[in-house]
Computed example of a mutant assay.
Amino acid sequence: MKECLKFYINGEWVDPAEPKTLDVINPATEEPCAKISIGSKKDVDKAVAAAKKAFDSYSQMSVDDRIALLTKITEVYQSRYGEIAEAITMEMGAPAKLAQMAQAAMGVAHLGTTIQILKDYKFEEQRGTTTLRKEPIGVCGFITPWNWPMNQIMCKVAPALAAGCTIVLKPSEEAPLDAYILAEIFDAAGVPKGVFNLVNGDGPGVGSAISSHPDIDMVSFTGSTRAGILVAKAAADTVKRVAQELGGKSPNIILDDADLQKAVTGGVLGVMQNSGQSCNAPTRMLVPAGKHDEALKIAKAAAESVKVGDPNAEGTTMGPVVNEVQYNKIQALIQ
Results as ranks from 00 to 15, higher is better:
residue 231 V to Y: 09
residue 118 L to Y: 12
residue 12 E to F: 13
residue 283 T to N: 13
residue 129 T to K: 03
residue 21 T to P: 01
residue 252 N to V: 06
residue 192 P to S: 13
residue 204 P to R: 00
residue 55 F to D: 13
residue 283 T to E: 06
residue 259 D to E: 00
residue 145 P to N: 11
residue 250 S to K: 10
residue 333 L to S: 07
residue 122 K to T: 09
residue 210 I to T: 05
residue 52 K to D: 12
residue 242 V to A: 03
residue 10 N to P: 01
residue 192 P to Q: 13
residue 217 D to F: 02
residue 12 E to D: 13
residue 323 N to E: 13
residue 123 F to I: 04
residue 153 I to T: 03
residue 80 R to P: 03
residue 70 L to F: 11
residue 150 M to F: 12
residue 75 E to A: 11
residue 129 T to N: 08
residue 142 F to L: 15
residue 294 E to Q: 14
residue 164 G to T: 03
residue 153 I to D: 15
residue 59 S to H: 03
residue 87 A to W: 04
residue 111 L to Y: 14
residue 3 E to L: 06
residue 324 E to G: 12
residue 34 A to R: 10
residue 166 T to R: 07
residue 25 I to H: 08
residue 174 E to Y: 12
residue 37 S to A: 10
residue 183 A to N: 03
residue 303 A to P: 02
residue 167 I to V: 14
residue 263 A to M: 09
residue 230 L to F: 10
residue 139 V to L: 01
residue 318 M to Q: 11
residue 169 L to V: 02
residue 215 D to P: 06
residue 322 V to K: 03
residue 238 T to E: 06
residue 257 D to N: 10
residue 68 A to Q: 11
residue 315 G to D: 08
residue 150 M to K: 02
residue 330 I to W: 07
residue 241 R to G: 13
residue 16 P to Y: 12
residue 106 M to V: 07
residue 42 K to C: 03
residue 265 T to G: 03
residue 320 P to C: 02
residue 298 I to S: 04
residue 294 E to Y: 01
residue 115 I to G: 04
residue 52 K to R: 12
residue 288 P to C: 04
residue 150 M to I: 14
residue 84 I to Y: 00
residue 61 M to P: 01
residue 97 K to T: 14
residue 210 I to L: 09
residue 68 A to L: 10
residue 32 P to D: 02
residue 301 A to Y: 00
residue 328 N to V: 09
residue 224 S to I: 11
residue 142 F to G: 11
residue 263 A to G: 10
residue 256 D to N: 04
residue 52 K to F: 07
residue 208 S to N: 13
residue 225 T to M: 03
residue 219 V to I: 14
residue 107 G to N: 14
residue 227 A to Q: 07
residue 127 R to L: 11
residue 234 A to H: 05
residue 180 Y to T: 15
residue 312 N to S: 11
residue 234 A to S: 14
residue 29 T to R: 05
residue 223 G to S: 05
residue 322 V to F: 02
residue 264 V to Q: 06
residue 265 T to W: 06
residue 317 T to H: 07
residue 319 G to N: 08
residue 267 G to A: 05
residue 200 N to I: 05
residue 42 K to F: 11
residue 114 T to E: 15
residue 160 A to L: 10
residue 212 S to A: 12
residue 94 A to C: 04
residue 191 V to T: 12
residue 297 K to E: 14
residue 135 E to Y: 06
residue 232 A to E: 13
residue 57 S to I: 06
residue 254 I to K: 06
residue 107 G to C: 10
residue 123 F to L: 06
residue 259 D to H: 10
residue 150 M to E: 14
residue 137 I to C: 02
residue 147 N to G: 09
